[in-house]
């Protein structure tokens, strides 16, 4: 980061000036999208499905996971569709032998080094590309003990694909707290606080906005983690109810996830104009008193 700055996240708001339209073709189909759009945006406009992992509409693209790569005619290597801006006359292939091979290998590399068991949609993605991570035999992984150092959420970095989303959410893109960052290098790169201090000693304010963007379940509220550990987490028995957070005048939209009469998680919709999926510690974790009389605590 250079310096924290306010970023307006453009969701459903109209733009002030109409943007120039750029024409390109994807898989032989012509499409026209506003200047500054990414190839992924253009694919979405055509209803072409492109897998993503490190991309999220509310975060700045970091283009690190490479599952979204596509073939751009004339380019030496594949391009990350999530960050590559469209250019007039571009010819893109969203699927090809090269694209599929790289996507398959990327998925195999992740599945062979990271525990993807709580990563939604991952099994389908692996199947779609015929990924067979066991091909690598016995190999190095990021396996490590889960970090349980506070009452509100756990960090199980054995499940981390290093998508940088939590770092972005905690830092420049949303929270401006900068409690966590990518440390180390190469295969040993990992998410960490300074000197790996426990969260209560770090700058963390327990907003849980990192949990909200984590695509693998590496970051998980303590309650969800406990229920999963006990084998009691069951999404088929959960309902989601939108309400308004009662704690302050901002009035964030809260989605309460309820399983068998118990609130098990609180989130906020990504497409909500006010929260963009974010909450503060009270909204994210302050619902426990509703059901068990305990007051929220951060330590």
């Amino acid at each position: 980061m250079t310096m924290p700055h306010l970023k307006l996240v453009q969701l459903s708001r109209p733009t002030r000036e109409p943007k120039r339209m750029i024409e390109l073709t994807i898989d032989g189909r012509a499409v026209s999208v506003p200047e500054g759009s990414t190839i992924l945006n253009a694919c979405q406009a055509l209803g072409i499905e492109v897998p993503t992992l490190c991309w999220l509409e509310t975060l700045t693209p970091v283009n690190v996971c490479r599952v979204c790569v596509v073939e751009v005619e004339g380019a030496r290597v594949l391009a990350p569709s999530c960050s590559r801006e469209v250019e007039a006359g571009m010819k893109v292939k969203s699927r090809s032998e090269r694209v599929d091979l790289t996507r398959k290998l990327v998925l195999e590399m992740l599945a062979s080094s990271v525990d993807l068991s709580t990563s939604p949609g991952m099994a389908e993605m692996l199947a779609e590309y015929g990924a067979a991570p066991e091909r690598f035999g016995e190999c190095e992984t990021v396996a490590q003990p889960v970090k349980v150092d506070n009452d509100l959420y756990v960090r199980d970095y054995a499940k981390c694909v290093l998508c940088y989303k939590c770092v972005e959410a905690c830092g420049e893109d949303h929270q401006n707290t900068f409690a966590i960052a990518v440390a180390g290098r190469g295969f040993h790169a990992h998410i960490s606080t300074e000197f790996a201090v426990d969260l209560p000693e770090s700058a963390c304010v327990y907003c849980g906005n990192c949990i909200a963007v984590c695509p693998t379940g590496a970051l998980m509220s303590k309650r969800e983690w406990e229920l999963r550990e006990a084998g009691q987490w069951d999404e088929s028995k959960q309902t989601q109810t939108d309400t308004v957070c009662p704690f302050c005048g901002v009035g964030c939209t809260l989605t309460l996830h309820v399983q068998e009469g118990e609130i098990v998680k609180a989130t906020s919709p990504l497409d909500n104009d006010i929260t963009v999926g974010n909450l503060c510690v009270k909204g994210r974790f302050g619902w426990r008193h509703v059901q068990n009389g305990r007051t929220p605590s951060a330590s």
Partner: peptide, 25 residues
């Protein structure tokens, strides 16, 4: 290459390790 990979992107971060393991085998 595995030591010097910055670790940012998956093909290089994990690929350089899988390459080394394959060569060892």
């Amino acid at each position: 290459f595995r030591d010097e990979s910055c670790g940012q992107c998956v093909p290089c971060r994990v690929g350089t390790v899988r390459q080394q393991e394959s060569l060892v085998r």
